[in-house]
């Protein structure tokens, strides 16, 4: 049996005469955490909505678990779960009531499953608090609890960390990694917060202006990206000369903010730090870069259409 769970081929979507997704083709295989990467308005949510059956393709086919018919797709979706835009939540109901309604609607006979998923997402102690009094993170976790109710094999999540505080982002990230590793759930996740995706994904689909511009695995990405040591000192202008003369390092570049990048001897941060110090330069920052995905994305789409705010968030220039 094929391990391809989602197969999108030549998918086009037009609203009125406006084409929002054009000729998109990609596959999601079992076990992946696949990131849909692109700025706001790139078409990520449209693709996810089409996977969920909310919008119908103008052209092309969507295959879920090998099914392409309307009936087959609906049946395949019972093995999947989605969180797109707002998570599932009736505001005037408690977490338990929300899940009970969902349980009835999905026809899940086991009532204990509600306790299991509440515990899994850490909402077991919210009692009779209605959802309207939940924090955004709690609502997001309730959405995930609802999604997990029927023990899905595949999760499709649209911007699940949007609006969360740093603690909430870490919680959701750890939960998703746990679900992928322990429950073997395949995950498709969209976000424009690339630093978060880089901590999660095994594969990437890059989208820009409704077109898929590249698909590649995390391994392929790391091969295509250059890792480097970022150095910022009290006197950045002296750093290249010192490192060239003392350590014979030639792979050096100076950035616009005058910080320095080293592309060689990446496992010798300690030695580099000591060398600088001995030559009267006080290092303020020395670390391996962790922004590969962002920079790769920038190189892929170019600076003319996309900007990178603080190196983390992508958005279309207006």
């Amino acid at each position: 049996m094929s391990d391809v769970l989602i197969d999108v081929r030549n998918f086009d979507k037009q609203f009125m005469k406006n084409t929002v997704v054009k000729d998109a083709s990609f596959q999601i295989r079992e076990g992946m955490i696949c990131g849909l990467v692109g700025p706001n308005g790139a078409g990520k949510t449209t693709i996810m909505k089409a996977l969920g059956g909310l919008i119908l393709p103008t052209k092309g086919t969507i295959s879920l678990y090998g099914e392409t018919t309307e009936k087959g797709l609906a049946h395949s979706r019972t093995r999947m779960c989605f969180i797109i835009e707002t998570p599932y939540a009736k505001q005037n109901m408690t977490a338990r009531q929300n899940l009970e309604k969902l349980r009835l609607q999905k026809g899940i006979p086991n009532k204990d499953r509600i306790d299991e998923v509440l515990k899994l997402v850490g909402l077991e102690n919210v009692g009779k608090k209605t959802v309207k009094n939940f924090s955004l993170g709690m609502k997001q976790r309730l959405g995930i609890a609802g999604a997990l109710l029927s023990k899905p094999e595949l999760m499709v999540l649209d911007e699940p960390i949007n609006g969360l505080d740093p603690e909430g982002i870490v919680e959701i990230r750890e939960l998703l990694l746990k679900l992928n590793r322990e429950e073997h759930i395949t995950i498709v996740i969209s976000s424009h917060i690339l630093s978060e995706l880089s901590l999660l994904c095994t594969d990437y689909v890059f989208i820009r202006k409704g077109e898929i511009i590249k698909t590649l695995s995390a391994d392929e990405l790391s091969k295509q990206c250059h890792e480097y040591i970022h150095i910022h000192t009290d006197n950045d202008s002296l750093v290249p000369a010192v490192l060239q003369n003392v350590l014979n390092i030639t792979g050096i570049s100076v950035e616009k903010d005058s910080s320095v990048r080293l592309y060689e001897r990446l496992d010798e941060i300690r030695l580099i730090s000591e060398t600088l110090y001995k030559n009267g330069i006080i290092p303020l920052e020395i670390h391996m870069n962790d922004a590969n995905l962002e920079e790769y994305y920038m190189s892929l789409v170019g600076d003319d259409n996309v900007q990178c705010n603080e190196g983390t968030v992508l958005s279309d220039k207006k």
């Binding site: 909310l54 019972t78 797109i84």
Partner: peptide, 14 residues
């Protein structure tokens, strides 16, 4: 109105 019906579609209800 609160879009919870979207989830019924996405969870495979016809």
């Amino acid at each position: 109105a609160d879009k919870t019906v979207n989830y019924e579609i996405m969870f495979g209800t016809k």
